[in-house]
């Protein structure tokens, strides 16, 4: 399942860059407008939050949550320098 590159939250300079990287760039504006404008803020996002933001497609929810999960795992493993 290691189809994404080894990139942690620290690897993306902006929320837009992260979303583009996972091909979910269409949600950039919604994230920014709702206060998820930094990677730190995005790291706290839950499935509930995504639904509230209007990310209703299950595939897109899965993609975004998987990517966040991956970034957290990498942080825990210390792969990404803070």
């Amino acid at each position: 399942l290691a189809e994404h590159g080894p990139l942690g939250t620290g690897a993306y300079r902006s929320v837009g860059e992260w979303l583009e990287a996972i091909k979910m760039g269409r949600y950039t504006e919604i994230f920014m407008e709702n206060g998820y404008s930094s990677m730190d803020a995005v790291a706290q996002v839950t499935l509930e939050d995504l639904r509230r933001l209007g990310v209703t497609l299950v595939g897109h929810q899965k993609k975004i949550m998987n990517s966040l999960q991956e970034m957290k795992v990498q942080l825990v493993n210390g792969m990404v320098p803070l």
Binding site: K23, V58, G59, H60, Q61, K62, K63, I64
Partner: peptide, 10 residues
């Protein structure tokens, strides 16, 4: 797959 539909559950 690009849209996250990468297994049969989803």
């Amino acid at each position: 797959v690009d849209n996250g539909y990468d297994d049969l559950e989803v």
